[in-house]
Amino acid sequence: MIAVELAKMFRRPRTWVTIALLNALPVLVAALLALTDLAPRPGEGPPFLSAVLTNGTLYPLAALAIVLPLFLPIAVALIAGDAVAGEAQAGTLRYLLVRPAGRTRLLVAKLISVVAFVLVTVLVVAAVGYLVGQVFFDVQPISGARATGGTALSGTSLTPAQITGRTVLAIGYVTASMLGVAAFALFFSTLTDSPLAAMLGALAVLIASSLLFTLDAASSIAPYLPTRYWLAFVDFFRDPILWRDVVRGLGLQAVYVAVLLGAAWANFTTKDVTS
């Protein structure tokens, strides 16, 4: 059933159109930066963007930072919100459930295909970012006597191997950060027959969370907001790595995924399926 769901998702043109659109913005930003040579002042704009003019190796991270606040969650909410509600709307859900596999397994299969989508999306954004970085910007030599790698936020020099390793960690962390969004959308998807409502519900949660995070009055609940630790992937580029927020971010996402999946399971396995 998992293989069926995965194949179904990746055969859909919509999946690939979403991923392609997601890559459009970082490519456009890179092209504009390369043409005008105007990088944002350090400390302004998305993280790492100010550094890419001198070191294109960092562009995968800048690309992720560009899509992380809005575009990536929208794409994830779109796919996850469609998972169950989409089948219901198309009238195919009851045929799916006729199979003897059971509703819990269907839910797990849907979740795994959403996770696969998140992973593929993040990897494609990073890969396109890497290519764009190599094409548009100066790149520090990766090997040889003059290999410098780059500078960590803390002012220490990182070897190219360190940069690569930390980029991989950051990609993994961004993927994990998206799981909370996916869980929200999947849960809403079991509540409603409208994929649009499920997606907008998940986005409403995210926008509320981002807004509350900026509010000093909400600082007591800030550690529990799903978007609280999203930017912690920057911490991989401090020296020594600051694990505190990364660990908290992973734990928080795990809690959201567990609770929302539990709710989705409790709701979906006993739901009257009418369409």
């Binding site: 400390g43 936020l153 803390s154 930017l231």
Partner: peptide, 11 residues
């Protein structure tokens, strides 16, 4: 002592 902000730091 490093003062860390979301996108940078001062050590």
């Amino acid at each position: 002592v490093d003062v860390v902000s979301a996108t940078g730091e001062t050590g």
